[in-house]
Nucleic acid binder design. Structure first.
Lengths: 188, 188
DNA sequence: GTGGAAGAGGAACTACGGTTCCGTATACTG
DNA sequence: CAGTATACGGAACCGTAGTTCCTCTTCCAC
């Protein structure tokens, strides 16, 4: 537990927020190719400052990706309250996809393009999967989806949908992909 | 029509073949990250020689990607002879996917990860799409797939499947993705 | 054979972008 | 209002990998 470091100095805290915000914007826009210097500049900060908080580019991206996974969990948690068991599942997928629509870097992350190690991501993933499992099981119990559906399938389909999202950035073609995939979930 | 250059000198021809073969192997194995020097070395050739044939890395990759698309067309053409209209479609997808299973670079290309310009690829794509359109229409006429299916859907689904293939390189998870997607094609 | 166009090889060049380092500035504690 | 730990900035460093260039070699047409 080295987590309990004394709070950041006020200016440092402010800069940290600006950095993550700028990083989010630029990575979303340009994917992993966004450059550290540009991010620092966008945040109105020197590179040294950036590197003080994130020892490496990979660390910075990992932080953002983890945020996204936590967001996914939050969305899933909300959808769990939807009464119709099928809609709970479908809506979860759709809303998660929508939430990353403009984020090129996260899309690449979903496909693990840069094969980073994503330190600590497993933690977030299992928290998310716990919720998703419940949603899936409920849909199965109601006979709304095929009996052999698993959480891994969920991730896989999101991966596929994300790929089309990246492939056709501007257009909304990914929604079509999601529709087809959702149709494939109906019990055979 | 600048296509009609005199034939290559015997040694040059031999080297060209070795180069494309080696490039195929290394790009398949390492994706776009494979290095020009390594490819030259693998082919038993100097870098200068490599650059004499392919003025740029992108050009080399494009040549290989075009080959793959031509292969796709060949597979589709074979599948057109399958009697069952649905099987023709499904088999085409499955066999194409199988054919690129070990080829990381092409998988990245399918998702347009490196946003190259892929000079001349449109030509190959439309040749392929012509065949696929016929296959799809036949399946629709037989009532085997949804009426609103289009060629773009085919490409999109292949893109999604390819993403899972890249994502889970070793394992065969992509087959599951393809199954789900194929199930989604059934008429509603 | 032989002349010369085409080809081979690979050291060196270059651009790019992540990361380091250190002198200077600033916030907090007592 | 010091004194110091923390933070800031950004020039410089460095590794990587694509590409160029120039000398030497080889094929082939006559």
């Amino acid at each position: 537990m080295t987590t309990e470091q004394r709070p950041l100095r006020a200016d440092a805290q402010r800069n940290l927020e600006r950095i993550t915000a700028s990083a989010q914007v630029l990575f979303a826009e340009r994917g992993t190719r966004a450059q550290m210097e540009d991010i620092a500049a966008h945040a109105g900060v020197g590179i040294g400052t950036l590197y003080r908080r994130f020892p490496t580019k990979e660390a910075l991206i990992t932080a953002l990706v983890r945020q996204r996974f936590q967001e996914f969990a939050a969305i899933a948690a909300e959808c769990e309250h939807i009464t119709d068991p099928y809609e709970a599942l479908a809506t979860s997928m759709r809303r998660q996809a929508e939430s990353i629509e403009g984020d090129a870097a996260f899309q690449l992350a979903m496909m693990n393009i840069d094969n980073f190690s994503w330190d600590g991501i497993d933690e977030d993933k299992s928290a998310l999967n716990a919720i998703l499992s419940r949603i899936i099981e409920r849909a199965q119990a109601a006979g709304a989806v095929r009996a052999d559906l698993g959480v891994e399938d969920y991730g896989m389909m999101m991966c596929g949908t994300t790929a089309t999202m990246y492939f056709m950035h501007g257009e909304h073609g990914w929604q079509r992909h999601l529709d087809l995939v959702l149709a494939g979930l109906k019990p055979s």
